[in-house]
């Protein structure tokens, strides 16, 4: 297991992180570091805990009553799971894009503005909305119909809108939980191009069940298996010359 981030700045670090759903342990004592302004991919067969791990980073697991978290997630010098940390504050700084596009049944403008309004954005709302839509590479397609319902967009457009919505509140880290799995290949490739652009400003962690996507898009890849971190390192090296046998088996399609 290689930790790649010795020279780079760390955006987020987990230490002995575990998650239990009732009696089942879904994530087992994982320690890793997410480097700043890079794309890290979590891969592994279904049920390996990669989504669960991702959701620890913005405390979304809090929403599941049966979930229990142990260990630490360190962000900006603080353990996110300390008692005095408010998850609402965490989530503005660590944003999330979900597997199935989930725009609000509101207008395109209001979708992006929502996060700004509740978080008390002090600048020009419309300007920020435009900036976010541009950053998500969807401005040109929607600039003339900002008041139209977001539900009228295609799947790929909706997902880019959701990305814009997440970017609007200026997070440091963007978590993406299989963002393209519900989309067609063309829309998928647009999202992948977008990720490439976004990493200049944001740190991105992406969960994907598509290995080729991980290989295309990420700088570092972590391979998880039944809740454990098996291998973590430079993407190119991991895919061409993995250190662990299970990693190699997964990559060559022996299981999962």
């Amino acid at each position: 297991m290689n930790q790649p981030v010795t020279e780079l700045d760390t955006a987020l670090r987990t230490r002995d992180l575990s998650v239990w759903y009732g009696d089942t342990q879904a994530v087992k004592h994982i320690s890793l570091e997410i480097p700043r302004n890079r794309v890290v991919a979590f891969i592994g067969p279904s049920g390996c805990g990669k989504s669960t791990l991702l959701r620890c980073f913005n405390r979304m697991n809090d929403l599941i009553p049966a979930a229990r978290v142990g260990g630490e997630v360190n962000f900006r010098g603080q353990n996110l799971y300390d008692d005095d940390v408010d998850p609402v504050e965490v989530r503005r700084r660590i944003g999330m894009v979900f597997q199935k596009p989930n725009p609000f049944p509101k207008s395109i403008y209001e979708n992006v503005a929502f996060g700004l309004r509740i978080n008390g954005f002090k600048g020009d709302l419309s300007e920020q909305v435009e900036r976010s839509l541009r950053a998500a590479a969807i401005w040109d397609e929607v600039k003339d119909r900002l008041q139209d319902s977001a539900l009228g967009l295609s799947g790929g457009q909706q997902q880019r809108l959701c990305i814009a919505r997440a970017l609007a509140v200026e997070p440091e880290i963007l978590l993406m939980d299989e963002p393209a799995s519900a989309l067609d290949p063309i829309a998928t490739s647009r999202i992948e191009d977008l990720i490439e652009d976004l990493k200049n400003e944001y740190t991105i962690v992406i969960v994907t069940h598509n290995m080729q996507q991980a290989a295309r898009v990420s700088d570092y890849t972590a391979f998880l298996y039944i809740g454990e971190l098996i291998e973590y390192g430079d993407t190119e090296r991991l895919f061409t010359n993995p250190s662990e046998e299970r990693t190699e088996q997964y990559i060559t399609g022996r299981f999962g």
């Binding site: 603080q78 940390v85 408010d86 008390g120 600048g123 200026e170």
Partner: peptide, 17 residues
């Protein structure tokens, strides 16, 4: 969280209340 953000005024205490 330690850092104050100039662009946002989340007013968490008020929202919680």
């Amino acid at each position: 969280m330690s850092l104050q953000d100039e662009r946002f005024e989340p007013r968490l205490a008020r929202r919680r209340r």
